[in-house]
Amino acid sequence: MEQNKMASLNTQILRMSGVNPRKCMRCGKCSGTCPAYDEMEYHPHQFVHMVETGDIASLLQSESIYKCLSCFACVERCPRGVEPAKLIEAIRSLKTRPVGQNHITPDEIPALLDEDLPQQAIVSALRKYMK
């Protein structure tokens, strides 16, 4: 049962992201270029590998999905066109969509503000972190 659910989540991630993890040749350039590497428990190349092998549960529970900056450096520099950032985005979307799974809530925002902070930052964070 649990296995079936994971398999279907995996299919969903592949469909949402449009990524084919089998294209990965395990060079690690994504992780070599990632600016948020040190903040992550699982790194971009591991995301690709874990989705390929179906280990979605660990990824869904990991804080790493909120650390991706969406800077697209991994997408740009991957020699095989794997696009790890799109995979991470799909997993994050999958995680935050169900009710009560928001990583950040509007109530938490005021404490984080300062007078110069552009709206763009708040809007982006909300888009990345909550349904």
């Binding site: 395990r26 060079c27 690690g28 350039k29 994504c30 992780s31 070599g32 270029t33 990632c34 590497y37 790194h43 190349h45 450096a73 520099r77």
Partner: peptide
């Protein structure tokens, strides 16, 4: 085993950032 992602020339050095898989 890994690939270099970025090289940044700075103060006469080349800062090599790469992954060690």
């Amino acid at each position: 085993k890994g690939m270099v992602g970025k090289i940044t020339p700075e103060n006469g050095k080349l800062k090599v950032q790469g992954s060690d898989l």
